[in-house]
Amino acid sequence: MPEWWTYTLSDFLLFSPRTYYRLIQRHNEAVWPAHLVTLILGLVIAASLARPSAQRGRVVSGILALIWIWVAWAFVWRRYATINWAAGYLAWLLGLEALLLAWIGVIRGRLAFGWTPDATGFLGIGLIGLSVLVYPMLAPLLGRGWHQAEVFGIAPDPTAIATVGLMFLVGGRARSALLAAPALWCLAGGLTLWAMHSPEAWLLLGTALSVPVGIGAKRRPTQGARGRPAP
């Protein structure tokens, strides 16, 4: 890119905030009541985290894989790509995340989710709480109304934050591979929201920045998880 230093974030913003948030609203209206399904899937994940086991690791991985396929296709590919030509590439990246989750977590059973009382564990639970409980409240709190609420399993931003949080509850090297796509999404999405002057940018950028911290932190063995250790 010639004279790259002359570019600012706003030079890469292709749409207005109004267009973007209406896109989310139209998606919410189109897929309702899928929100109830993702809520139930979220509760299943929470229950699996409370009593971790190898089998439950497969269940959580499978749910996450399904959710990413759904979000990548229904939102990123079919909707977001209509206003952002780069979204098509991101949809493939998120599809790859789903395949990795299915391969590593479901087929090979290498993901044992479980909370431990260490820095990574607190960070992981904190991000999951942020994604599921706080993120949907932001739209109404910021004056955009419930119709534009971004919900885990429906919109990519809270789904990416929750995925990063869940990967912090997994040990082993596999989580680095599984953190790449959601971390990249958080970075790209955070920069987009920053250019749009949206306060949510902080949450996405903070999540992206937490990834190297979470990977670097030494994690205690998960209590109760009897799955094979991750490679």
Binding site: L14, T19, L23, R26, T82
Partner: peptide, 12 residues
């Protein structure tokens, strides 16, 4: 630029 990039939103 930006203003007409409204996707398939019928209202916009």
């Amino acid at each position: 630029w930006i203003t007409f990039n409204v996707g398939d939103d019928p209202e916009l």
